[in-house]
């Protein structure tokens, strides 16, 4: 488990989808009700950037066709067959910095 500092905490205010890159991997960070989430910035349905979508109540919605995912687990909430989960990553805030620990596999239900 290696946490990598990515951005200052102030750069991820409540309710804002913040796209970042770690080792060439696109991740989107989101803070809601004080909880931090990190999820791959790529929809498992048709590959669009999730960071251009909307998030609320612990879910993120893809802007392209509207697929919905649980931010904590990555599971698809849309009841349409064939939408895989999106990988989520452990995330924390230390000394004013947001740190992300990349999930090694393609998928995980790990959260902080």
């Amino acid at each position: 488990m290696v946490y990598v500092p990515v951005i200052p905490g102030d750069d991820a205010p409540e309710g804002k989808l913040v796209p970042i890159e770690i080792d060439g991997r696109a991740i989107v960070i989101y803070r809601e009700d004080g909880n931090l989430f990190a999820i791959d910035d790529r929809c498992s349905h048709a590959g669009a950037r999730l960071s251009g979508g909307k998030a609320r109540n612990g879910t993120i919605m893809c802007p392209l066709h509207g697929a919905r995912f649980n931010l904590a687990t990555g599971h698809c909430l849309s009841k349409v067959q064939g939408f895989a989960p999106v990988a989520v990553h452990a995330i924390r805030e230390r000394d004013g910095m947001i740190e992300v620990c990349l999930n090694g596999g393609n998928m995980g239900a790990e959260s902080n």
Binding site: G53, K54, R56, M61, C62, P63, L64, H65, G66, A67, R68, S78, V80
Partner: peptide, 13 residues
């Protein structure tokens, strides 16, 4: 008189 609703992304098969 503006509207008050902004629909979210939506799956429309």
């Amino acid at each position: 008189t503006p509207g008050d609703l902004h629909p979210e992304p939506r799956l429309i098969p």
